[in-house]
Amino acid sequence: MSLLSVNTVDRLDRPSAYFGKNKRRRYNDEEEQQQQEKADDKLKTATTLYVGNLSFYTTEEQIHELFAKCGEIKRLVMGLDRFNKTPCGFCFVEYYTHQDALDCLKYVGGTKLDERIIRTDLDPGFEEGRQFGRGKSGGQVRDEYREEYDPGRGGYGRAYDEQRQREEDEYGAGR
């Protein structure tokens, strides 16, 4: 009911800068600008959330149990490793209404699921193909070069781990 256009504290139900991050650089031509506006419009009515930082072992049922607290879930798409089709730590949750998606950003994003702090972001909508990781080795890009050991997400980053192994081998061979 409030008449405020700007709130006195930040809102947690704003989309992140993820979409439009690449396009924002400079509007080279009109077409590009229109595309950008279209994407913004899509987020204004979006009913889908991208959910990140899940453990590889978190199941659909667990996600359902938590996210249904914000409204009935229309569709849940697990993020999969492109090559071996196993969960790789993200998913898309689609609600029936935009409000449910916003509420989820406010109330569930940044809380724990399966004892990990999860991330939620408004998403313009799932499209076939987006369920797969885009990293070189099949998982998410962020799991390629991760230098920390994360048991819930396959240990070290894969590319990082490979390099580490190689260096170790070479070091051993050199001796």
């Binding site: 607290k69 914000c70 409204g71 509420d103 406010k106 109330y107 569930v108 809380t111």
Partner: peptide
């Protein structure tokens, strides 16, 4: 007034 999970999240 709000979804119950909001009050959960405030306590959290």
């Amino acid at each position: 007034e709000h979804k119950l999970v909001y009050y959960h999240s405030v306590l959290t």
